[in-house]
Structures are given as C-alpha cells and as structure tokens.
Design a binder for these strands. Structure first.
Length: 325
DNA sequence: GACAGGATGTA
DNA sequence: TACATCCTGTC
C-alpha cells in the first residue's frame, strides 16, 4: 500500500526508514514500553467507544501519518487526507459521506484521535528526552561518537533487558550505526538485532521529527514542548545527584521499578533497585565503577547540607528530600 | 546488604 | 565544591 502522504522532506539529512518514520519492528518495540502501551490502550479504548476497530498503532504509525503532518507541517497537510481505501473503518452513521466533505461527527472523531495520538508521541519523545538527560547524549544518533553509541547500547540493554552487546558495536559511531541495516545488526548481534534496530529507528524518527519541527515552526504541542523544557541538563552545569534522583522520580513510568515516591508531598522516596539506580547514575556520570555503596555515600553527604535526610522512621533504602518540590 | 561517617583524591 | 573511592565498623 503506498501512501499519498510524504512526511519526509527530500532535503532531510536523516530520514526514517519508512515514510511513517516508524518501521513495523519499531512499532512492536514501542508497544512493549509500559507507558506507550498504556497510551495505546487508552486510544484503543477510546476508539472502541466510538465504534472504531483500528488499532491505535495502526492509526498512529501506519503510513498515512496525516496527524503528524498536521502537527509538524500544517500547510502541507492540505493534500494529505487519506484516500478512501486507506481510511480507518468506522462503524458509525455518516460513513457514507463523501471523503471530500467529512461530516461533523467524523471531524470530531478525527480530532479526538489526533489528541490522543499526540499524547502517544509525546510519551515517546519524553522517554528519549529522559534518556538523553541521563546519558548526557544528544537525541540525534547521527551526532553520536563511539562513546555515545556505547552509552545508548547500555541504555537499550537496560530498557529491554538484553544481554551485553556493546563489544560487538565498539568500533562504531552514530553515523555508522544509522547506516546499518537490520541484517548488519544481525551479523553483529544475532540475538538482539531486531530490538536494537527497532529502537534505533525510534530514535532516528524522533530526531527527524525534532529537526522537522524546529524549522521556524511556532506551533507547539505537547511532545514538542518537551524538547525545549528547561532542566538541569540544559544549564551546562554538571548534574547533581539529588537532581538526578529527582528526575528519575519524576518519570515513574520509566523508572518506577527502581525508584519511587513513598510520599511525594513529604519528599520521601524509596530506592527499589539500588544496583540499578547506581548503574544509571554511573552511566550519567561516566563512572562505570559506580555502585550503591558509593552512591549512598554521596547521598549521606547531603545530610550535613540539608538536602536529603533519612525519614523520621528510618527504613532501608528510604530517603527524604528536606525541601520537597 | 544497608547504613553511618572518616579520610583522601580529583576535576 | 561535589562528588568518587576506600575504609572501618554497626546492625
């Protein structure tokens, strides 16, 4: 099926592998991520409420991607409406209306879907943004050096519980990585090629979207705003441990399994997986030998400074921000 | 294994 | 200054 919608500019340096920006495997990968699955379920639920039976991901990431064009390139979207055979099947009155003059109901449905779709994309961008902060790398894989590639690999291993594959890619920088086909990935890492390739696709697509959106566009939606969100990693100052911990805590969808609030109002949090948090901190600071013993020593340095303390009722792995956000 | 805190090194 | 590292000791 060919798409009438081209969301890629011919001049774009980095082009996603498909016209949608997301390959089938990267979509499958997206579905595996908790928050995205939630968003997807939300959308599917919403769709079923309205008599739609098209999967949200089919809607969102199949080749039409008209919503994406609307978000990023509204004027160009004028000719980007779906051809009739590509439209989602909608079991509702008014279906017989001419595709050239959608009914009010169709327009309302479309708008609702667009809103949820932009939420899903927002989640993807948010995850990437968080990873960039934690790893101190740029979101565009094309700009990565070999060290950045290794960090990204470590990150992807962590995210998808993959075996260590860094050695197989140790001689590659971002440009090399981006030019690799899935078969190239398979040759270097037969076990993880699909996941790695798909995950890289997501990053490439996000980078492409960001590049596309930053070209003088004044229109801002949720996902895009996230890229320009001011945070500790944008200040040029090295991140402090307490800031890092707070950032993890503020992304429960991504890190809730290793650190979470026990009482957000009081700033009380629990480190659920000490080794994991330490590894993330080590990644962020380029300290491969980081462990919880060292990390906790740094946390204890905050006791004197009045930044973090143990709660009144001391518990293992539970700390408290003295000045909760 | 978590915790507390001293000592020292480093950028 | 803000850790990172190593250490001793306690629970």
């Amino acid at each position: 099926m060919t798409s009438p919608v081209r969301i890629h500019s011919e001049s774009a340096v980095l082009q996603p592998p498909h016209s949608t920006g997301f390959t089938e495997s990267s979509l499958a990968l997206l579905k595996r991520e908790d928050g995205i699955v939630q968003s997807s379920e939300m959308l599917e639920h919403k769709a079923s409420d309205r008599g739609l039976y098209l999967s949200c991901f089919d809607m969102l990431f199949t080749e039409d991607a008209a919503w994406l064009v609307r978000v990023t390139d509204a004027p160009a979207a004028a000719g980007a409406r779906l051809e009739p055979e590509q439209c989602p099947v909608i079991d509702s009155p008014g279906l017989g209306a001419s595709p050239l003059s959608p009914t009010l109901e169709e327009q309302v449905e479309e708008r609702s879907l667009e809103q949820v779709q932009s939420l899903v994309v927002g989640e993807v961008l948010k995850d990437i943004e968080t990873a960039c902060k934690l790893l101190n790398i740029t979101p565009d894989p094309m700009e990565w050096n070999c060290g950045n590639v290794q960090k990204w690999l470590l990150w992807t291993e962590h995210l998808y519980r993959l075996p260590q594959v860094g050695k197989a890619f140790q001689d590659l920088d971002g440009k090399d990585l981006c030019s690799m086909s899935e078969e190239d990935f398979r040759q270097r890492s037969p076990q993880c090629s699909e996941t790695l390739h798909a995950h890289l696709d997501i990053w490439k697509s996000a980078a492409w979207m960001k590049e596309r959106c930053s070209g003088g566009e004044t229109r801002m939606r949720e996902g895009e705003e996230l890229w320009s969100e001011a945070d500790s990693s944008c200040s040029g100052q090295p991140i402090h441990l307490w800031q890092f911990l707070r950032e993890l805590l503020l992304k429960p969808h991504s890190y809730g399994r290793c650190i979470r609030w026990l009482n957000k109002e009081k700033g009380i949090f629990k480190i659920e997986d000490s080794a994991h948090v330490a590894r993330l901190w080590g990644l962020r600071k380029n300290r491969p030998a980081m462990n919880y013993d060292k990390l906790s020593r740094s946390i204890r340095q905050y006791y004197k400074k009045g930044i973090i303390r143990k709660p009144d009722v001391s518990q293992r792995l539970v700390y408290q921000f003295v000045h909760p956000v």
